[in-house]
Design a protein around this nucleic acid. Structure first.
Lengths: 133, 133
DNA sequence: TTAAATGCAAAAAGTTTGCACACGC
DNA sequence: GCGTGTGCAAACTTTTTGCATTTAA
């Protein structure tokens, strides 16, 4: 992978964010430093870097893709009102690590189980405040 | 909710399917019986019926929405190659039912936890066969 | 030097919306 | 008859792609 200034700055801006930005959000941040960058470049770079395991693509339900500058496995919590995603500093749930735990009283419909995706849902502090008003 | 023939037939076709169709797939099935129906009507009806809890919207990552004629809670498994979704006849994982189990060594970042979404990933029988060839 | 990356614009894919008309209750 | 629902077309949002040009190694 060739290191271009675009790639470098995209990665830098992603790592400097503790939110998990959408492509668009990141595009506007990067654009402040590289005004001529195109959205397609941001898409292409995020895709490639997540394939290489440098960053992590967070495929949340429904809405847009988001990216996480931290490639290590960890859980996420998503706000059901605003869609924001935060890291969840909990340890991986052991009972799920072993797929045998989940197939005790049923077959897997002939699927070969390769993993699972666990996402937590909640209400973020900001949206809790809005509800109170 | 008013019962129109469109609504009735959409629901009937969804219930008669053991796959978990996308809106488009269902649209073409319904179209065989109601040739003049529009895609917008299918969208509007599926949305409304899932709001009312008559059916279930399956919000899988990345791709399109899919719908399930069975409103009861159950787990799904998604094929990582073709995106197909099947029901998984396993019982709900008890350890996840109690949110206290997941917050033992970390806080929840001030989120109010409301639930979780657990989806299994696998390779469906058809895609396993394709791989062998 | 040359293959990979970029910018731009257009296309694609999925979903939503405005509006006039139709129809269930 | 009223108000919800429908069909149609157009708009919208997010993501991808073709192509000529630029650039890192």
């Amino acid at each position: 992978m060739r290191m271009t200034s675009q790639r470098e700055i995209i990665l830098e801006e992603l790592k400097n964010t503790d939110t998990h930005p959408t492509v668009d959000e990141l595009y506007f941040k990067v654009k402040k430093r590289l005004p001529r960058i195109s959205l397609a470049t941001v898409y292409r770079n995020l895709e490639k870097m997540s394939e290489l395991g440098i960053i992590q693509k967070i495929e949340t339900v429904g809405s847009q893709m988001r990216f996480d500058g931290n490639p290590e496995f960890h859980y996420h919590i998503r706000c059901i009102y605003c869609g924001k995603i935060d890291d969840l500093p909990i340890r991986p749930i052991e009972s799920l690590k072993d797929s045998r735990n989940v197939s005790l009283d049923g077959d897997l419909k002939n699927y070969k189980l390769v993993g699972f995706k666990l996402e937590f849902l909640g209400v973020c502090p900001e949206c809790q405040n809005k509800q109170k008003q």
